[in-house]
Amino acid sequence: MRLSAALVLRLALAGLLVAFLTMPQRFAPLLRPLTQNDAPAIYAQGDLLGLTLQHLQTVAIATAAATLVAVLLAILVTRPGGRDFLPLSRSVVNVGQTFPPVAVLALAVPAVGFGEAPTLIALFLYGLLPIFENTMTGLTTLPPAVMEAARGTGMTNAQRLWRVELPLALPVILAGIRLSAIIGLATATIGSTVAARTLGEVIIAGLLSNNLAYIVQGGLIVAVLAVLISDAFGTAERFAARRAGQGGRKG
């Protein structure tokens, strides 16, 4: 089976990322021209692999929590008995977009202290809106003929939701989760300002020491992770669309 050029490129990118995280000193000659006054080219105040895994863990927890809440809210407001809650639900999920993440961090620190907790709160609030809106779109734009056929087979409301509506809406929901995860991946870097262990630690260290090599390696790791995660979600969306018989339906 022949691999596409895009897949080969992504695999090469993933391989380079793994190599850099596990053997960063091998790449020091490439980054040394970005340093001044014989400053170190590779961030050595913490383990890059450990920081990357902690960064991903923080984003994964926040995205999973946002997905659970946003999808449940979207299901609620698309049921006949829950439509009255749509304005309230929209107000809730818009909180993260109303306040910038830095402001959320500043408000959360006095309540929960420094560390990972305020970062999780900020990422959770910031990730709600795209998942909620995409789930709403997916559940309210289902083919009428399919829904009528499901009713005609005698399915209960719960059966239609789990067997028909959610599977058909899944590609659009996954697109919302992908957007939320990518936003969270970038936004998590500011968590290091409140002592969270993220890749922002590398970037901030570079800014404080005027070391461009630190800034570049921190930024590139986040950028490569974003590309790889986006690709993974894109593959999942296409697979879900084929399973649902939608071809290339997009959200």
Rank of each mutant, 00 (worst) to 15 (best):
T187A: 00
T98W: 07
F233K: 07
A19M: 11
L142Y: 09
M136C: 04
M136P: 05
P144A: 07
A205Y: 02
G127P: 03
L105P: 03
L49C: 07
T119Y: 01
T67C: 02
L53T: 11
Q159A: 14
L30F: 04
Y214R: 06
G184T: 01
Q246Y: 08
G176F: 00
L166K: 07
V222E: 13
T235G: 07
R79H: 12
R2G: 06
T135E: 09
F233R: 04
D84I: 10
M136T: 07
A175W: 10
G176P: 10
R238F: 04
F85R: 11
A223P: 07
Q217M: 14
A39S: 14
R10E: 11
R10I: 08
L17S: 09
Q54F: 00
L199S: 06
A5V: 08
G127N: 02
T52P: 06
I177R: 03
N157S: 15
M1Q: 10
T187R: 01
A44E: 13
A41N: 11
A241S: 15
P87I: 00
V69Y: 13
T35R: 01
V18L: 15
I183G: 00
A74G: 09
A117G: 06
G138R: 12
T58L: 13
A62F: 04
L16C: 13
F233W: 08
G219W: 03
R90F: 08
Q57D: 05
P87K: 02
D84R: 12
W162E: 10
I173G: 14
P80L: 03
F239N: 08
A28G: 09
F132G: 03
A188F: 00
R242N: 09
L220V: 12
T67H: 01
L86C: 02
Q54T: 08
P101I: 01
P167K: 13
A60I: 12
I229K: 09
M136L: 15
M147L: 14
V112N: 08
L174H: 04
G138D: 12
L68P: 13
G200E: 07
A106I: 15
